[in-house]
Amino acid sequence: MFSVLIDEFWSLTISGIALGFIYVLISLGYTMVYGVLRMINFANSEIFMFGTFATVVITRDVFHYTSLTESATGFRLVLILVLSLIASMLTSAVIAVFVEFVAYRRLRARGTNKLATLISAIGISIVLSEVMRLLTNSRPTGSGRVLEKISLGEIWGANIRIDNVLTIVAAAIIFILLDRFVKLSRMGKAIRAVSMNEDASKLMGVNLNRVISTTFLIGGLMTGAASFFFVTVYENTKFNIGFTMGLAAFTAAVLGGIGNIRGAFAGGIALGLLETYASAVLGTQWKAVTVFIVLVLVLLFRPNGLFGEAIQQTRA
């Protein structure tokens, strides 16, 4: 039973980390919003789903890559990848700001309780997923293989594949940029201030609406980046893809401590590894069971997740 874990430890670890980084980026969409508003953005899964379709549209409709065409190389490859990444990030960011505008802002302005916004977020999430269901006739959409999955060599018997490396390196860079932004920039400070004490920061002259919109925007950008990596690695998407991935990322956020950026990082990587190891050792049918048992155990001993709640704790 454990022989596969021993034989394939490093290849499992690398794919687990690559999957983990995708979770990290999506869970930032949950964590940023929670940190500022203390509310779960249930529409984040659909923000992710729309992002995946943006990459598909760029590769399939703009550059005409189907599942039968040869992969791209050189400058063209870089161009397509960069454009797809930007398209996914922008699409998700626009949808995220739109969600904030229709599902959160008006209700907040009227001073409704937080449960009302929770329901309106679920509502907009259903609307978004149904729109895509109708557009695609509920069918799975394949994406052409733009990036040939060449092996970069072997380390300790593990096959180092370019798409995994790309995901890990690029996602790590994006994560570090976000971490620096929240820590050092003026807007980052404002976000942390609102997260710490909404009323006090308002009195200090922080523009609350702008901070909240920016938070959704950043969450959307991160989630959109995850969509791009997802399609590049797995080459498919569907209108309900957000549910599975969103649930996993939300779990990762809670595991690491929701509202905490570095917690999302730890939670995402831990979840990616846990899922991969559990599937390998116990069989894929035990993956979800194992993950939730571990989540419950972690929450029993650390009720606020591994790193504790709230963005403010990430300050230097």
Partner: peptide
Amino acid sequence: GKDSIPNDATDFSATLSKIKST
């Protein structure tokens, strides 16, 4: 070897590793 993968799964890397190791 055998595996049982829910039909909404997206990542098969653990199964791939098992196939490779067997």
